[in-house]
Structures are given as C-alpha cells and as structure tokens.
Amino acid sequence: MKSFSPFVTVARGWALVLIVCMLGLSACGPDKPSQSSDKAASRASFRVAWSIYVGWMPWGYAQDAGIVDKWAGKYGIDLKLVQINDYVESVNQYTAGKFDGVTAASMDALTIPAAGGVDTTALIIGDYSNGNDGVVLKGKSSLADIKGQRVNLPELSVSHYLLARALQSAGLSERDVTVVNTSDADIVAAYQAQGTTAVSTWNPQLAAILASPDAKLVFDSSKIPGEILDLLVVNTETLKQHPELGKALTGIWYETAALLVADSPQGKAAREAMARMSGTDLDGYQAQLRSTYLLDTPQKALAFMRDPALKESIDRVRTFSFDHGLFGADAKDKDFVGIALGDGSTLGDPANIKLRFDPQYVELAADGKL
C-alpha cells in the first residue's frame, strides 16, 4: 500500500478482560434509537458493529451507499451498521449485548463471546487472511533467525497465533523467543525503535512496516490458508427470533461483495470509497485485497464452510486458545466450548455449543431465494 493513516490502527486482536454481562440480549436495547411513529415502532430494530479492516470495508460502504437500507426495507426491519474505532471494544460491546452482531476474527469470536457464554452464530465468512498478517525481521531474511529474539506483537491476538504457527513451521516453539506485548496502535512506532528486531502484525500496519528498507517478511498468513478467518457474527437467540435479520445481512454482504470485485466503473468507485474509509488510496487498498482471499459469492462460502479443512483449522485455533488460557479458569481442556461446523459435525462439548457456523442463510443466497 502507498499510504498509511495513523488514525486507522484498529484491527483484529484480543483483550484479556472479557466482558461477561450477558445473556439478556435482545433485538432492541436502550442504546437503539426510539421510533417516532406507530409503523416504525412495530419494526424490529438491530445494530451491528464493524471495524476498519480490508475485508470488512464492504459493510461500511453498504451503510453509506444505501444497500443496508434497501435490504432492511425488504425484510421490514430497521438496521444500522455502526463503525467502532476500537476493534476489541466492538467485540466486547457485542458480548455485553450492546450490539446484535459484530465483525470479528474467528479466534476472537471463539475466545470472547463464545467462551464467555454468549451463543454466537458465524453468519458470514467473508474472507480469510492470505498474506494480510505477517512476521517481519529487521535486517535478517530467514525465519530461523528469529530464535532468541524479542518479538513485538499484540499478545493473545491473531498475530500471536501467527507467530506460533511460524515457529512450528521452523521447528521452534514460543520458548525460543520472547513475546513483547505491543498494541496494534503502537506496533509501527515500535518497529522503528532501535532495539526492536522482530514484529508480528497485520495490515495496514504490516504494509507500513514493510516500507522500511530493512524489513524482511519471513512468514505470512498465506502459509496457513483458511486459519485466520474474518466473520460477521450474530447473537444466535436474536437470529432465531428474527431470521429476517440473517436474510438482510446476507443479502447486503453478497450484493456489496459483488461490487467489491466488479471490473466496472461502479466497482472501481466502490473500491475507491472503501479505500478512503480505510485511510489509504485505491492502490493501497487493492494491494491489501490481493493478500485477502475473498469469499465473495455464496457458492465459494458454502464450499469453504463444508470443507473438512475448516474443522482442522478451527481445531488448531481452539488448541492455541486453550493453551494460552483464553477459555478462562473454568476450562479443563480445549473441548470446553462446543463448536458446530457447517458440515454438520461438532468440536468440543456438544452440550455447550456456543459458536455455530450456520450455512442456511448462505444457502438461500446460493439458491437465489433471498
């Protein structure tokens, strides 16, 4: 990418403090706008939070371009997509019931709301990172050179997971390095510090760091395809009570995703708008898109959701999460949280299913029934 905005530093990560004031989730809450007419008052109202990330920009664009209102109107609901400038806070607010849905990485959906007891459905798998996350060494070009180094990264985030997978690929473990907890907002500045020799981070921060002549990318998420997933998740009980919300959100995603990849003036205009919203230019945004594997059609998403490889990647993520204490003190093993997968199988405790990859709404889109 050609430019980097210091104001656009939110991305996918994890917070040690789980907000677990939950279960009393409803479609309408005190933070939602009051309705001024009898007709409006009869419509269910929903809010969904999203954050700046290349694969989530279509949600913000859809809100601005009227696509959200179009699909919400079709299903007789009021729906607002709200940008939150702190990604972790957006997931915490969803967990606390302030939002009906949120954009989240699969690891965070598992370890924050699901592990905290909030039954959560992965409605949309929008993409997986295919190079948007990377491990960078300063002045060294071999991953093996990371041994003995201090690695700056947001601890217990997807960047931490990426580092663990990188070390495994080199026959190393986390015992061979020292992790230095560094926020995503500070990671670019931390790399510039004289004593920093290694970082693990994501775009757009990764692109900014790689602009330095001494920065060497030694491992990235293209080496672990399908493991760092970017989702739109919705509260399962809300979705059960209001399937129209699932239909509207699914319609919004696939209409906007089609624009995102369209080779047309309308597609270019949409990408330019998404680039501006994310703090870069068109070239910079398209560079990030090239390292993102978009599931831009329902057919792609269904195939991915039903692929046995998804079960394998989710198992790796939950193993990392348990090993690093992200399931909380009550978890005796990695089976603590039950996960229902799109092929009908499960991982973990079937009596405690809290994360669900539900393909039914994507199936409607694939069949042209939305």
Results as ranks from 00 to 15, higher is better:
184 D>S: 13
23 L>Q: 14
13 G>M: 11
262 A>E: 15
331 A>R: 00
319 T>C: 01
324 H>P: 00
47 R>H: 09
248 A>P: 01
242 H>D: 00
67 I>A: 08
183 S>C: 04
104 A>T: 12
145 D>E: 12
308 P>G: 04
346 T>A: 06
329 A>K: 15
343 D>A: 03
87 Y>A: 14
323 D>L: 12
144 A>K: 14
92 N>R: 15
192 Q>P: 05
280 T>M: 12
47 R>T: 13
9 T>D: 04
217 L>M: 01
143 L>W: 04
301 A>W: 10
365 A>V: 03
320 F>M: 03
130 N>I: 00
192 Q>G: 14
327 F>S: 07
12 R>G: 12
70 K>A: 07
92 N>M: 08
175 R>P: 05
166 A>C: 09
24 G>W: 13
127 D>A: 15
324 H>Q: 02
194 Q>N: 09
146 I>G: 01
46 F>T: 03
325 G>Y: 06
188 V>T: 10
176 D>K: 00
198 A>R: 00
201 T>N: 01
10 V>K: 09
147 K>S: 10
252 I>L: 04
201 T>V: 06
343 D>Q: 08
351 A>R: 15
269 A>T: 04
199 V>C: 02
199 V>G: 01
248 A>I: 02
329 A>W: 13
237 E>L: 11
305 M>Q: 06
125 I>C: 11
155 E>A: 14
321 S>I: 01
213 P>D: 15
136 V>S: 00
220 D>A: 03
297 T>Q: 05
129 S>N: 13
90 S>Y: 06
206 L>M: 13
199 V>S: 00
277 M>G: 10
347 L>C: 06
220 D>P: 00
220 D>M: 01
114 A>N: 00
366 A>K: 10
348 G>Q: 05
59 W>D: 01
140 K>Q: 15
314 I>K: 03
